[in-house]
């Protein structure tokens, strides 16, 4: 199955460059010393997008059964959601 849906090396390189750009965005937010719940939400969203990209395109889960993709997406959503909740609690 993997051969049938194999990504081209060109697309893999584009995906890698997207991950690099998102990492630089995270670093820039940190360097600017930005904080607050909107910044936090942005950072979490970037981490979620990056993790999903790695899972779907590098780990090659995008063609896997729904159960496996759900476990992976659910993991990022639950862990990210709880980190978000904890951050909001910390603001009070």
């Amino acid at each position: 199955m993997n051969n049938t849906h194999a990504l081209s090396n060109r697309l893999l390189t584009i995906i890698w460059l997207i991950l690099v750009a998102l990492t630089i965005a995270t670093f820039s937010i940190g360097e600017a010393g930005l904080s607050g719940k909107h910044v936090m939400l942005t950072l979490l969203a970037i981490a979620l997008i990056k993790s999903q990209i790695v899972a779907n395109y590098f780990m090659d889960l995008r063609n896997s059964k729904l159960i496996w993709r759900s476990i992976m997406f659910g993991y990022f959503l639950i862990v990210g959601g709880l980190i978000w909740l904890a951050y909001l609690i910390g603001l009070k």
């Binding site: 993997n2 995270t26 670093f27 937010i29 940190g30 010393g33 904080s35 936090m40 950072l43 979490l44 970037i46 981490a47 990056k50 993790s51 790695v54 899972a55 590098f58 780990m59 090659d60 990022f76 862990v79 990210g80 980190i83 951050y87």
Partner: peptide, 26 residues
């Protein structure tokens, strides 16, 4: 090869969460 690759990607995406959580978020 795919098995070892999957482990390495896991190590990668765990750091993708760890980095903003511990180093950036404030």
């Amino acid at each position: 090869v795919e098995t070892g690759a999957s482990f390495w990607h896991m190590v990668d995406f765990l750091w993708i969460i760890l980095f903003p959580l511990v180093y950036i978020i404030r």
